[in-house]
Amino acid sequence: MPLLEFSEKGIYCSQADCFIDPWRPVKKALITHAHSDHARSGHTQYIATKDSVPVLKHRLGSFINILGLNYGEKILINGVSVSFHPAGHIIGSAQIRLEYKGEIWVVSGDYKLEHDGISIPFETVKCHTFITESTFGLPSFRWQQQKTVFDEINNWWNKNKEEGKVSIIAAYSLGKAQRIIQNIDPSIGNIYTHGAIENTHEVLRRQGYNIKQGLKVENHTKQDDFQGSMILAPPSAIGSAWTKKFGQYEEAIVSGWMAVRGIRRRRNTERGFVLSDHADWDGLNMAIKNTGAEKVYVTHGYSEIFARWLTEQGYDAGVVKTEFTGDEETDLQQENQVPV
């Protein structure tokens, strides 16, 4: 019997009787990271990295039963050695390594190879079987270095400022928002953050992350005060009445999907910056190669295509069927399916 199986509740380890990122309530859940498609409510016990515990509690409720582990710290569950290793995706994100009788499996969760300056960089974990995400598992997705993208964002902000406009960026509160606020040039102007983002940042600050403070958008803030500033807001706030108070503004979306012009246009946004917390094509291929795994399972994205590609590269590759509802970045693509 293989160490991990794919059940209708999620990835399952029968020896340890626990699930990884399950989508139905289970007794014991190992959680790669706090994004909602990986960390769902209703499990009896959660095990995650120490770094993701505060956000998990913030999102799922302070009452959850959760065990936090340091990166690399090993625990034994019925003879299975379980440890969490940096995935570089967002703060607290991890790949989960399971070892039993010399056989090693790694579940990648979401990951990226580039160091974003906030989350602990991705670490290669040698294994026999690697379960990888494939959100951007097509050869058309290749990212530029984040410095180049932030230069573009800063230029855009500067230009809007010169024209007396406000810049609004749609960013998810966990992941993108931190990456952006930490990396844009604060000398250009004021940075305001939406309440939903600031709440998450407050949680991260309390656990010791030095996330820059954004100004609060108050009801009584005058329109003129916003001029030339940058506003970070969750995508749901964009285009709502909330943005009316800023006067003239330009908005942009920051996402790997913005590499595709058709998606950019369908989202009706003028500016799209191509920046992702997921690995690009080269990143996925490199990560897989470095694990030394012979067997690779693909999930979370263009699984069939990517698995076929890996098979042709000599791997023993297969597809994990997930009840895929899309992660935060995928949501962005699938939103507005009904065109009107």
Binding site: L138, P139, S140, F141, R142, A259, V260, R261, G262, Y302, I305, R308, W309, E312
Partner: peptide, 26 residues
């Protein structure tokens, strides 16, 4: 040029939806 099999190009094209763009990205 990209050193990928044609079927992979075709699948990618199908998803991107625009041939000129697919080529420029690949």
């Amino acid at each position: 040029e990209a050193n990928i099999p044609l079927w992979l190009f075709e699948h990618t094209y199908h998803i991107i939806g625009d041939l000129a763009e697919t080529i420029s990205l690949i």
